[in-house]
Design a protein around this nucleic acid. Structure first.
Lengths: 165, 165
DNA sequence: CCCAGATACCTTGATATCGAGATAAATAGA
DNA sequence: TCTATTTATCTCGATATCAAGGTATCTGGG
């Protein structure tokens, strides 16, 4: 017989039920856990990225270029679309990565307005190592779920995401 | 018969499988969806908060005070613990809220180091309205799941969270 | 060919956050 | 009672993000 354990989110819902019994706060519980989980997960993954001198932003860009396959190059616009950030943010990210020598930028010969961003050799080597470590970290982070549970969670998140984005 | 639809995360996983078949990227899919979902959900909820002149940060603090019940007061430390932000961040949040007249701060009579932060009448009225709208928004955001699915998702998130925080 | 509108990217200014370190007050122990 | 340690909060500097607006370039219809 399994004992239901009160967690932080449960306590929040209990408080609301007492203070505002008119509100249906069940969705708040689910979305609250999702937010907290995201927060905790990001913190945990940041540690691995930091071992390679990276953070969420820089890992995100380098990984996007790496998984694209040869010649490991995309335009800033492509990168923006893939990573869900605004143009100002992407400009900033690319400046940092260029300064660190992890990417190279060349004018797009086919479009005078644009650039092509590609992984440098150094950037390729770094992300190739970092992504392996990152995947290991992620494996640990989901290890409290069985493979079937993880897959079920995946399906539910996918369904929810499909109707929002 | 249900057709499996490729979403953005699926395409990322396919790319990785091609480029790095040595990596098990299944956890990456789940955690990637969780991150994207959090991003999309925050964007959606921000719209509701903005209708009341609030954002994630300010809503978070006011709601924490409101659900506490009378006398709607907590110390900055309590608020920090409840909202998972650092002391510097909380100081900043409280400055903004005080400037807006939504909270009041008094020296804690029982502890000369600390303060008590309480909702002003204006703050109480505002959060009481805003939270009702927020709950409505959340209801819409999870409406693509059946009640059973939402509850299942809740349980999985809770289990995952339990082993992390 | 030309021009209006779309597109690609950058710049700027405002915010939110963190981490490290400072200060003041409380507390526990000799 | 003193003192060392802990706790509560703030300050400061660095960074990441967004939104709005600017410039250069492309593109499609007349």
């Amino acid at each position: 017989m399994s004992m239901a354990v009160m967690d932080h989110v449960d306590r929040i819902l209990t408080q609301w039920q007492r203070q505002r019994p008119d509100l249906n706060v069940a969705p708040m519980g689910t979305l609250g856990r999702l937010k907290r989980l995201n927060h905790v997960l990001m913190r945990a993954m940041e540690k691995t990225w930091a071992e390679y001198g990276l953070n969420d932003s820089s890992f995100d860009v380098l990984a996007t270029l790496r998984r694209e396959g040869p010649p490991y190059a995309l335009s800033p616009s492509d990168l923006m679309a893939s990573t869900m950030v605004t143009s100002g943010t992407m400009t900033h990210r690319l400046q940092q990565l260029e300064k660190a020598g992890l990417i190279e930028r060349v004018k797009n010969p086919a479009d005078g307005r644009g650039f092509l961003i590609s992984l440098s050799d150094k950037g390729f080597a770094l992300i190739d190592e970092a992504v392996a470590a990152h995947v290991e970290t992620q494996k640990v982070l989901v290890s409290s779920l069985s493979e079937e549970q993880r897959s079920q969670l995946d399906a539910l998140l996918k369904q929810l995401l499909a109707n929002l984005s």
